[in-house]
Amino acid sequence: MENIKAVIEALIFASDAPLSLEKICIILSDVEKQEIKEALEKIVLEYNERQSGIYLQEVAGGFQFRTRPELSPWIKKLKSTKPHSLSPAAMETLAIVAYKQPIVKSEIESIRGVDVGAPLKGLLDKKLIRIVGRKDVPGKPIIYGTTRKFLEVFNLKDLLDLPNLRELKELNQQQEIVEQEIVEKTTEDISNL
């Protein structure tokens, strides 16, 4: 097939949600995955090179055309939609859920130092977070995680695409090391008794 690029471009344009590579592969069953990947990269480049008003973004595990951020003032006039507004409390709660998921309410509260019932409910209503299950501890607290919509709204490829994740991981590791040392120390103390 000579114009796979055009076919892929059309498929992404016609899709309502971000279109995954896997789905494109299923539709274009006689084309190699590698070839599709290369075509996608070419489309991304072409849109960037000619400074088009839209660009191809890899988001929520798929590809989607989006308008460029710097053009938002004009689009807003067209759409007259209210922008996503999240309170600082909601943003912080969302960030904690995003980075530390799966997480229960009490863990979020120990980080924020305040009750997070209201922001959690707001985030659930906005479908940015979801209930992923219940933790098998007394009281069976609800476990929260982020949704696909979260990735779409925040322009993220997947959860690994979250900014500064490495720094946070390092912080966690440091904490674990400290906790380990404490445990080791305590066992030593006990054996010394």
Binding site: R68, I75, T81, P83, H84, A98, F154, N155, L162, P163
Partner: peptide
């Protein structure tokens, strides 16, 4: 940082 990202329906549109 999250809030500064290009947000759907605020900065980018589909």
């Amino acid at each position: 940082n999250l809030g500064e990202r290009p947000l759907l329906e605020r900065d980018v549109f589909t």
